[in-house]
Write a protein that binds this DNA or RNA. Structure first.
Lengths: 342, 342
DNA sequence: TTGAAAGCGTTACCAA
DNA sequence: TTGGTAACGCTTTCAA
């Protein structure tokens, strides 16, 4: 609220209070050995000058910034947004702050972002990788800075990871579909390079083969390449229309819904649907969309916990690969009885 | 890639290269007047020591951090996530970074976050307010730091804002519904305190009154208080079921879809629907959901542009209140012909 | 073309 | 209970 625009420094506070810089610093940090009278003097000066500490200088001196870098591919994906929100929530509890970067699915940008964050002296990094495997070069640079990877097992012992059993969850979900009597089940998604996608695909195939069914998939190279038209073609292509779709992530699931609408296919009567990753409108559809749900809140929390442990123990630990359980939410779209009807 | 874990400093680089600190600094910053031979010497040392500049120290000295603070209420709202992504994209072009905070709809947390970001010496702040009006106290602290507000007109001349004509857009949308012949149209949403919500509500009422219709609304105090059950009650409450719903934001729209499903109401035959704010699954529903769409990409871009202008010109400008046009996307749910059918 | 020295705003080690 | 003084890692006069 000062008229003069320049920000007050602790030095100025000290002068205004008629004490030394160090004494003002002591008051600021609630250190002991300050005479109450002096403290009042200093606090008064701080008040008058509307003093605000400069955390940049503080961090430089203290050698830790209180900043965590968060690297994600997209923010428009519900799962990612929910994770970031959970991460923020947990980081905040430790009075730290988040620096966020969004790579838009570009591994080169991702590598650049990691470097930028390291220069900014983040104390740790939480990465949701955008490409199949984190670029080794990117990772090399992080030596000395703790890293937690989400969605992909930690590539080195220097890092921790928080993942889910993608393959297992996919297998069980597909087995569930098979249990409904569907034989022609197609997996739909994009980006085989991604660890999550490839594992889910493997799980799908395992489930199919074990039941003597022929795996069939439509997996585009990138998210953008998976068009609604291409999905429609998969529906009308052969004489044998798929009886069910296993969507490899929520984006694919939504596009499939889109395509099914265009083809006027009823769910689950004409084609059943089960997707990986929950999304905000899943229960608003008629019928509700069955999904494999990840514990986003816990993923974020555990990632931050692991990171802080590393930061404190200064890398004196072996890498941890945490695997959290998923939840198969059977709603209506997979062919299950319609629980949404009272 | 060094074996020793401590990070190299420019000082060490200089020593290793056998030059002075300043010379190393000159090389680092591509300053002229460095003998090519010397430059090579320094670059070699940098390479060997895997030198990475410390942006904290740099910022402290240079007195600008290259960091923009972004304050949002939720990340799980599609509109917000899209805005943040757009902001990041534009900020990145200026080689700056984003510090993100999420208030979870708590004005007290929001005020705290603003203070934290200021202490961290952000060069500017982009705020999507969580409460009706930004807490004056929060804003007071920002004096000297440029602020751009999204979704709400700048409360003071010290700030800029990027908004949309909420009232007008709502009015036109409701008029469109009325044009379809609906008479009993109900507005559904939450948080009257929010500038966006209250303006949209006013627009709705104006449109209704001008046509001699009686406004009717269901507006909960907070997002969480707007339950699906309460919406269902609105549908069955009176003998006069609403003929159409005007949802005040996407969260309300999704909950309405949910409620309509439970009540087995067909869209638009039983009840038509038009919502404020687009969302990722809007076109996947049958019929597609008609919405008023905000230009998120442009909102983010313009917000950053305004902010950087202020940062450069050092507040020598009057506050700008940018108002960007919305788009009324008539899909199927409002009762329009069904363009989604080929 | 190069370098010594003084800061940026804090914190921390010793004395007083 | 206090206060010099030296860092933190970098940039920036001003000389040489």
């Amino acid at each position: 609220m000062r008229g003069d625009s320049q920000k007050a420094t602790l030095q100025q506070v000290a002068r205004a209070a008629g004490v030394s810089l160090k004494t003002a610093s002591r008051v600021l940090n609630h250190e002991p050995h300050v005479k109450p009278t002096t403290e009042l003097l200093v606090r008064g000066a701080m008040e008058r000058l509307a003093y605000q500490p400069n955390d940049l200088a503080r961090s430089l001196k203290a050698r830790h910034s209180g900043v965590i870098g968060v690297v994600v591919p997209f923010l428009s994906h519900y799962f990612v947004a929910a994770c970031v929100q959970a991460i923020h929530h947990e980081v905040e509890r430790s009075h730290a702050t988040i620096m966020l970067t969004v790579s838009s699915g570009d591994p080169v940008a991702e590598a650049l972002h990691i470097r930028v964050l390291l220069r900014r002296q983040v104390e740790g990094l939480i990465i949701l990788p955008t490409s199949g495997h984190l670029q080794p070069e990117s990772v090399a640079e992080t030596i000395g800075t703790p890293v937690v990877v989400i969605d992909q097992p930690a590539p080195t012992l220097e890092m921790d990871s928080v993942t889910i059993p993608n393959r297992l969850a996919a297998r069980e979900a597909v087995r569930h579909l098979i249990g409904h009597g569907y034989k022609r089940i197609i997996a739909i998604g994009a980006n085989r390079n991604l660890h999550t996608i490839s594992e889910r695909l493997v799980g799908y195939r395992e489930a199919m083969r074990r039941q003597g069914l022929k795996p069939l998939d439509l997996v585009a190279n990138t998210e953008n390449e998976l068009s609604i038209e291409s999905i429609q073609k998969a529906f009308v292509r052969s004489t044998k229309t798929p009886q069910a779709v296993f969507a490899l992530n929520s984006a694919a699931c939504i596009k499939t819904l889109h395509a099914m609408k265009h083809c006027r296919l009823r769910i689950p009567e004409d084609v059943a649907l089960l997707g990986f990753d929950d999304f905000d409108t899943a229960e608003a559809f008629q019928p509700s969309i069955s999904v494999i749900s990840q514990p986003t809140e816990e993923i974020g929390r555990r990632a931050v916990e692991l990171l802080f442990k590393r930061i404190q123990k200064h890398n004196k630990r072996a890498g941890q690969r945490l695997v959290l359980a998923t939840d198969l939410l059977l709603r209506g779209s997979c062919g299950c009885g319609k629980p949404q009807h009272r």
